[in-house]
Amino acid sequence: MLTIKNLHAEVDGKKILKGINLEIRKGEMHAIMGPNGSGKSSLSSVLAGRENYTVTEGEVIFEGKNLLDLSPEDRAREGLFLAFQYPVEIPGVSNLHFLKTALNEIRTYHNLPPLESKEFLKLTKEKQQLVDFNANLMNRSLNEGFSGGEKKRNEVFQLAMLDPKLAILDETDSGLDIDALRIVAAGVNKLRNADKAFMVITHYQRLLEYIVPDFVHVLYNGQIVKTGTKELALELEEKGYDWLKEEVHQKESV
């Protein structure tokens, strides 16, 4: 589904990603971990098409297409979704109107007619119940005045509504209390299926107790320095990142 080959990227002339290689197949759950500043969020930004990043080398193939050639909106329409670490508040745009616009723009891209209001509302209700999103928040302005937890739950609700092929969750767990974390994780787990893939970016192992990954990658200094299974996350939780950093520096000095 997604193939990242030797991806290099920089922002303001500073090299952030220094040769990322990653393969994600459908149905898989990948966790990306790593210390602060290792390039985790940058990877998600580059994949979603944030404009201040410049890709200097490498390629990304998503469902047979060169992802880096596409505008952010076309990436979304092709089935890529990024749950933001810091969801934006947009006063004056209602949550429902925003979702309807997004959904219909994606449908138009695939030559489908826009959803009738009735169908849209039915879908909304179904997904809202699925991921346990507060119905009262749907008519409010997009994320305006939402608590941190409500914003993150709204990201998962949008994920459910837009039904992407690949969802990237960028530190969706950070700043959440345990109840909110459980709800967010339960929502994600309900959305897992054989056709959908996930890339979960997190700083903490805690999330991975609720969302169990198939693979865990450790990102450090712009590269994936180690790949393992969920046991790797436990090891990181116990030992921290320092032993990995030392391993990398030893390799470099060899």
């Binding site: 098409g49 909106e73 979304a76 006063p91 745009v93 925003f98 616009t101 997004a102 723009e105 302005s141």
Partner: peptide, 25 residues
């Protein structure tokens, strides 16, 4: 804000229109 809307599949024009509408709301 513009990037957030575009990352949900909303084209640049529609996204800007939403934001100006929101500003004028």
């Amino acid at each position: 804000s513009l990037f957030y809307l575009r990352s949900r599949g909303i084209g640049e024009e529609a996204a800007k229109s939403l934001l100006v509408n929101a500003f004028a709301f």
